[in-house]
Amino acid sequence: MQNKIIKKVIKKDKIKNWINELMKNYKVIAPVKEGDEDVFFRIIKSADDVCMDFQNTVLSPKEFFFPKSEKIFEFEGDEISDSGSKIGRKRILFGARPCDVHGLTILDNVYKGEFNDPYYLQRRENTTIISLACSEPDENCFCKSLGTGPVLCDADIIITDLGDRYFIEAKTDDVNLVNFDIIKEAAPGDVELKDIKQKESEDKITRAIELNKNLDDLHLEAESRKCLGCGCCTYICPTCTCFDVSDESMISKQKGKRFRCWDSCMFPSFALLAGGENTREEKSDRFKQRFYHKFKYYPEKYGKVMCVGCGRCTRKCPVNTDVVKIINYNKLDCNY
């Protein structure tokens, strides 16, 4: 059946009531402010904790689908027990920005395929996404050039700030999530205003990545010189998928667990073979790999780039490496 879009509105002061309704049947993951200005996704205990006023969260919601660390199995003596992939309560990811929702569709390609990653895919299937459109994208955002935008995305429900109320667009499959007294039918004026707000927000995004350029090895090498080789850019990236698998055990090795955890192609150990040979020995090799993977290899395989334009890596790089500048670099601009 074709999914029709249901259009509704909710007063801002009723948002908490809505979240409370959702919490009755779902585990809700939502943005929570910690400290002065940082907003993180957390499993909320109360709708009062939800923060609706933020540019974007420090970390993408990736970790709720692909956790920093997760157990694969436990073992004792000579037996293992599959304790990893259990389906929990149904979840709602509330307030994810469109870029981050786009990021999940990029992860999907990797974790699906000839082999399915049960941990990721079960969480994904078990989670309904309510996206919060951006009204104040910042100067590092460039989502518009990557096929989405501050409003458009592949979420189940998208809500847009209209000033004193939010506009809600929901697929009919999720009608039960918006069927509450506090949520009213949208008036034609609301639809119009939503389009205006969307346009305003889109116009605020001034940066764009140019995808028709070839990567320039010499330029990447020059840029890599200041790179500290930390994993910050890859760990805060909503599309980075790499992980390590490791065993942890008591000294006796009789009891322990296997887990997987985030890993970064920026670390020297990433391509280190057991015999001591390192297939990406130099920092510049590792630095290049990140850009080639995102902007060449992944697109060759899946038809789109492995970047959503959230701007996190540029915002957070301790030495201000700028992804847009690197990709848009034109040989003519440079005097290397």
Partner: peptide, 17 residues
């Protein structure tokens, strides 16, 4: 190559495309 998962997910054995 360095390999962790063996099934195309973990990214370690990536060489070019």
């Amino acid at each position: 190559r360095m390999m962790k998962c063996g099934i195309g997910k973990c990214g370690h054995c990536n060489i070019g495309e």
